[in-house]
Simulated scan of single mutants.
Amino acid sequence: MKIKVSWWVLVVLFLTLFGRSGYARTGDGGSTQGQGGYQVGDAVSAFRLKNTDGNMVSLSDFASSKGVIVVFTSNHCPFAKAYEDRIIALNGKFAGQGYPVIAINPSDPGTHQDDTFEKMKERSTAKHYGYPYLVDDTQQVARKFGAGRTPQVFVLQKSGTQFVVRYMGMIDDNPQDASGVTKLYVDEAVTNLAGGKPVVTTITKPVGCAIKWKNQ
């Protein structure tokens, strides 16, 4: 346990000293999302991206779902890696309740080689994701959502023919230690929605690796 805590202390220290490396810091005052972006209550535009199985996946493919859990994530980010099993668990818990996970990788493979499409396929297969892992190679979907970090979550609820944002932010309140989590933001949001109740906490500040935009 000491080794695990020490490793995360070093990570946090590194991020504090070298904030420009692309990693988020809590309360750093910087932008946590791309230009523009959806707000809670907004309807999401349709998107269509390539999955790691080679097929194209559209938001409209989930028309029969009650909603979806959109997670912007990546292969290289230590925060995304720390949350990987928790994302898998969210899909395992909520897909059957009508809220499956859609994972999207907007990371520039020119900046991080671990985020190439081939590496995405390898990771999805090795971890048996059980949900789509889509490549946002133009980063346009991430920009529309206003995503700025990996991981960053948007819980969408089906309303008529549209998907509406009901929660946006972090998965829970403890990136470094799943056993130390006290606030299950996404879990609580989806549980409420599935039970016909409103989401209590609708926005939290995502903590993770900053998305490197290709035109910057």
Rank of each mutant, 00 (worst) to 15 (best):
D115E: 02
V190F: 06
Q176Y: 14
Y83W: 11
T125A: 14
Y185F: 15
T201N: 12
T150L: 06
Q33I: 00
N91P: 05
D28V: 01
S45Y: 07
A178C: 03
T161G: 12
A178I: 09
V40T: 02
T138F: 09
R123W: 03
S64N: 07
A63N: 07
V207A: 08
R149K: 14
T191C: 00
G208I: 00
S58C: 02
V57N: 06
Y23T: 03
D114F: 00
G110Y: 06
D108S: 10
L13M: 15
I203Y: 10
K144Y: 09
D173L: 08
K214A: 08
L134I: 03
R123P: 07
Y23Q: 08
V9Q: 15
W7Q: 15
G169Q: 12
K50A: 13
Y23M: 11
K183H: 15
K50W: 03
K127H: 06
I87W: 09
K144M: 10
T161Q: 14
C209L: 09
I3S: 14
R123A: 12
Q39V: 05
K121R: 10
T26D: 13
K81R: 13
A82D: 05
P151D: 09
F154N: 11
Q216R: 14
V70E: 10
N192C: 01
S58I: 01
A210G: 09
G29T: 08
F117P: 02
R86L: 05
R143K: 15
D137Y: 12
D114W: 00
R86T: 03
